[in-house]
Amino acid sequence: MHHPTHRTVDVAGDVPYAITIGPGLLDAAHPDNVKRLATVLRGRHALIVSDSHVAPLYAERAAALLHAAKPQLTLSRWVMPAGEQEKTLARFAECLDALAALGATRDATVLALGGGVVGDLAGFAAACWMRGIDCVQVPTTLLAMVDSSVGGKTAVDLPQGKNLVGAFHPPRAVIADTTVLRTLPDRELRAGLAEVVKYGALFDAHFLVWLEAHADALLARDDAALAEAIARCCEFKADVVARDPYEHGQRALLNFGHTFGHAIEAEQGYAGVGRDALNHGEAVAIGMVLAARLSTLLDLAPADHGDRLQDLLLRFGLPTRLPGGLDARALIARMRLDKKADAHGLRFVLWERPGSAHVVSGVGEEAVRAVFDAAAGA
């Protein structure tokens, strides 16, 4: 099969970098891949950081590519247990211990091989080791490819909340090999597609039309369709982040669906919804539908925009209704605690239509409750 050409997205900023997207990018037999990595490796030490799901699949491939790029490299790996619950200060300290054991100098490189948890924790360790060393991000989930590879946000969680300790630390390069998505569980692929849909909803109605047309190809993990979707999302996000690197204004738009989604995620943890709990992408899918419904209730947008968004999410196999067992009052109480709320009411990213969204403050709780009541069930 003919491999589609690789896509490159250039991310501006104090330290510009490139995101390379396409199949086979981790293949050490390909001279372009070796050259790409050779140009970003500055020193003689590298640490591959991965987790127990991804390392058995791809760590050997990453190590072979690093050695091909720099044969004299001193290379070690640190593998953490998989899961969001492992994104802790204790694991972060273990990662720093691995850098210390390697004897990593200031020109060392951390290669983050995994999903969002690995990217966040490894990126934060790179940000802190000797006040900042290079990090090459090799995202292995669709969600990490579209969402974590731009913006340089790194963090770990505390018991008191997610991402409370972290730093802005843009990577030196991002390598998004679409081939690795073949081993991604279906549910994780769909969760990533929720974030892909978000970028269309926020920035480009034409992209939503493209997604409708290519839904089957994306679900079948077609390399060309995936590379196109990932590149477009990265371009949208890079554009926003370049204008608002530290999240003071426009970058808040990227939270479309997230105020509802985060409340659902937090509340189901509290309500003891265990194995059947929604993941982040699923919660955001429901959150976007609720945000669209709220936009209609507040007379900002016609209802058919929300219907079309819901249909597209359903096409990708994503949930669009609130799961049973979640109490509207408890969800609203969580939103009051959200860092985006203020004294005048709740804050949401709402839309007039796809491609036209903005932050709306001071939304009354009655309106939010009405949206929850309408969306209950399923």
Rank of each mutant, 00 (worst) to 15 (best):
R106G: 13
W78G: 01
L37V: 12
Y199D: 01
A341G: 11
V136D: 01
H6I: 15
L326I: 02
F316G: 14
D327R: 05
D204M: 08
R190E: 09
G269D: 07
A242W: 00
V273S: 01
A28H: 15
A69R: 11
R7T: 08
G317Q: 09
G161S: 12
D338T: 10
H169V: 00
L143K: 02
E366F: 05
A333N: 11
K339Q: 04
W351Y: 08
F372S: 00
D134E: 09
R187M: 02
D239E: 15
A29T: 15
L290D: 02
E94D: 15
G345P: 05
D216E: 15
E94T: 05
R187P: 07
A55I: 12
F203R: 06
D244H: 08
V371L: 06
D342G: 08
G345V: 14
Q160W: 12
R353M: 13
E84M: 09
E60K: 15
A12P: 06
T8H: 06
L278C: 06
F124K: 07
L102A: 07
V15R: 13
G119P: 08
P302A: 13
A227P: 07
A330D: 14
A46Y: 00
T320A: 06
M1L: 13
Q85H: 11
A38L: 14
L346N: 01
H248L: 14
W351P: 01
R221L: 10
G43S: 09
P185D: 13
Q85I: 04
E86V: 13
G132T: 03
P4E: 11
V79Y: 01
E94F: 03
V34I: 13
S361E: 14
I286S: 02
P56M: 10
P354H: 06
G166N: 03
L350M: 12
T20S: 15
L254T: 06
L253P: 03
R91Y: 02
